[in-house]
Design a protein around this nucleic acid. Structure first.
Lengths: 169, 169
DNA sequence: TCTAGAACGTTGCACGCGCATGGACCTAGG
DNA sequence: CCTAGGTCCATGCGCGTGCAACGTTCTAGA
């Protein structure tokens, strides 16, 4: 990775303002994540990672996703997702289902209980994001930040593209 | 926290574009953090959190900071910082020093070895940030994002204000 | 002066994560 | 066919984190 030399602007260091941007980005992310985490935990006994999983499943066709696909979307390692799905399954929010075409494959499927729990928690989640980010910025700023994020992320991870090739079955 | 009702725009849900902004922010943060972490680890056997600690100590007056202050700056719980300083002390990069004015207080102090390790790792750190963020955005965008971040963060955590009241001693 | 409460840092504990590994299964090349 | 290598998910293990509780020290009020 390291592009120390040969980059467009091979300057040796960065300005305090630039460093501040990065540090503020870190702070923002940590702060928002913590608030969301605790809000969801106290109000619905649901971890943020669990919410993300339920959310991704809900918007997937057939309410189901291959473990691999799901892991990419929620930014978790495969092993991490295995354990998380274990817990969600134990709580009855998600079920595992075999894949007919590929005996190796496994689907995580959102159960009705999971959908209900998701619906119950969603207002908490959304108002957390709004209060901390979306409502603080105006429409113009929101457009600007969206454009910048699009530049910063490789197109193949712009967001959880719902369309993705998607596994068969 | 929850500001479900009474907000400026008490809409019930958010648009897909708004959700995408939040999700892309998550992705960006995770991606940058992981790259930084592994770059530092393979090149200098230094975890990102450790780098942050060394970095904050280096820019503090007297190369030292109270445990509490340091914990705030590196976004770690007090117990988390205790363990991290344990490790850094074991590796000789940081030392603990008592506080003359307050017998409860303890300083984490950057050692010469710590400063050397920091200097060695800094190019890796900086080029990671540049390659992934700073060089991708132009000056205008950088100004815009800085302004937005300033809006999003309470002034009392705009960044690691070096000036902070700071403990005596 | 004495005492109740707060602040500081550390420790016991349990949890969640990633890495490396393993077993089951699929697929392409002889 | 049959085998080598890849993919998929699960498991063993160690690590780093936060929470709650603890001892020590400071501080304010009677």
């Amino acid at each position: 990775m390291t592009v120390t030399t040969g980059g467009a602007q091979p300057r040796e260091s960065i300005s305090p303002e630039e460093l501040a941007v990065w540090r503020m980005l870190q702070r923002l992310q940590v702060r928002v994540t913590r608030v969301l985490e605790t809000d969801l935990l106290v109000a619905h006994d649901l971890a943020l990672a669990s919410y993300d999983v339920l959310s991704r499943l809900a918007e997937a066709p057939g309410r189901r996703l291959r473990m691999n696909d799901l892991a990419e979307r929620v930014l978790l390692s495969r092993s991490g997702l295995t354990r998380l799905i274990d817990r969600l399954q134990r709580d009855g929010l998600v079920a595992r289902e075999a894949c007919a075409d590929d005996a190796r494959g496994l689907f995580a499927v959102l159960t009705d209980a999971g959908a209900a729990r998701l619906a119950e928690a969603t207002p908490t989640y959304l108002s957390g994001i709004r209060a901390q980010i979306l409502d603080v910025l105006d429409a113009t700023e929101l457009r600007q930040v969206a454009a910048m994020l699009a530049k910063l992320l490789p197109e193949d991870e712009q967001s959880g593209r719902p369309g993705r090739p998607g596994q068969p079955c």
